[in-house]
């Protein structure tokens, strides 16, 4: 078995040091080593987006990343979106607009939406849909999710 490598990174604002094997996937590292199980595994082929997290502000698929690549990076997972344990405005909009049903894809969509709203304060519907193309949802038909992101952008950035 290969030696482990020491990595230092920041996750949800907290410094983390860990020893990981080079072949440790970021999604497995988050879920199994750090118990951050909000990040989901849905396809392991980089299609469904349930494992999406932010790395230095950019949304990426943690099932297509190695934990070792994250040395020196700042990560946000779904657990890091809440404000003092309460849902953020974006999370609230997902709750109120039918942006979630079974909830399994929700963390991934929240991360993709966070990335989008950080870059584009008032995206139009076409931009929203295009920026969700790396995430799959089987429950909502995407309508509630699009509505939620529109609602959040309005609440966060005004009309």
């Amino acid at each position: 078995m290969m030696a482990k490598n020491r990595i230092s990174l920041e996750i949800n604002g907290e410094a983390v040091e860990a020893d990981v094997r080079p072949n440790r996937l970021l999604s497995d590292f988050l879920r199994d080593d750090l118990a951050l199980t909000g990040t989901k595994r849905g396809c392991e082929t980089g299609v469904c987006g349930a494992c999406s997290v932010l790395v230095d502000g950019d949304v990426v698929k943690s099932c297509l990343s190695l934990a070792i690549q994250m040395n020196g990076c700042s990560l946000t997972t779904v657990e890091g979106l809440a404000c003092d344990g309460a849902p953020s405005p974006l999370q609230k909009s997902f709750m109120e607009c039918g942006g979630l049903q079974c909830g399994y894809c929700t963390p991934g969509f929240l991360m993709a939406a966070s990335d989008l709203l950080a870059r584009t304060s008032r995206p139009d519907v076409a931009t929203i849909r295009k920026n969700l193309s790396g995430n799959l949802c089987r429950c909502t038909g995407y309508q509630g999710i699009v509505d939620a992101i529109l609602d959040a952008s309005e609440k966060m950035h005004g009309t």
Binding site: L36, T37, G38, T39, T77, V78, E79, L81, A82, G85, P87, Q91, K92, F94, M95, E96, L100, Q101, C102, G103, T106, P107, L110
Partner: peptide, 13 residues
């Protein structure tokens, strides 16, 4: 809103 929506949105379900 779903009564389960908060834990789902927080990633805690």
């Amino acid at each position: 809103p779903q009564v389960t929506s908060q834990e789902k949105a927080l990633g805690r379900a």
